[in-house]
């Protein structure tokens, strides 16, 4: 596994890592209101993972955890699609129905609230998990390959 880098890199990584991760989470949760969404937020959060892997070496992350996060994300996504099966796959039956994310929205230019969107925020969260898990796994796998250089 990769060796940790110099103290400067580690300190800066420690400062930047939470900021990037929080920004990624913001993009995921606000995906139905502002630019961003599951994929963008997940990619930003995964670049925080990349920062940690570069600065501290890959031992902080477990492959099993990331792959579980990934599978969970996809199952949540398909589940969010299957909720709408009474009408059609992916139908947004939760919108305007009350409950979490179910606040009613009026059509047109409005002050959109965070609790609107029905299944859309759920899907954003699912895609976010999926992308963090998947890209994190890619980074871990390649960083592991990068620092074992023997040739058969």
């Amino acid at each position: 596994m990769m060796r940790p880098m110099s103290k400067i890199v580690r300190s800066m990584g420690g400062v930047l890592y939470p900021l990037i991760a929080v920004f990624g989470g913001y993009l995921i949760l606000h995906g139905h209101l502002t630019p961003g969404g599951g994929f963008q937020g997940g990619a930003v959060a995964a670049s925080a993972v990349a920062l940690v892997v570069v600065a501290y070496g890959g031992t902080l992350y477990k492959k099993g955890v990331l792959s579980t996060v990934e599978s969970f994300g996809l199952l949540l996504f398909l589940g969010a699609g299957l909720i709408g099966m009474s009408a059609a796959f992916f139908a947004n039956t939760l919108a305007n129905a009350g409950g979490l994310f179910g606040d009613a929205v009026s059509f047109g230019v409005t002050d959109a609230g965070l609790n609107t969107g029905g299944t859309v925020p759920l899907m954003n969260i699912a895609v976010g998990c999926e992308v963090i898990g998947g890209l994190g796994l890619i980074i871990l796998a390649l960083s592991k390959a990068a620092f074992t250089r023997e040739v058969d």
Binding site: S47, A50, I138, I139, L142, A145, A146, F147
Partner: peptide, 14 residues
């Protein structure tokens, strides 16, 4: 800009 560059650099190191 971030992830692709990182994986390219990992691959070049490898």
């Amino acid at each position: 800009a971030a992830l692709t560059t990182a994986i390219f650099i990992f691959a070049i190191k490898g």
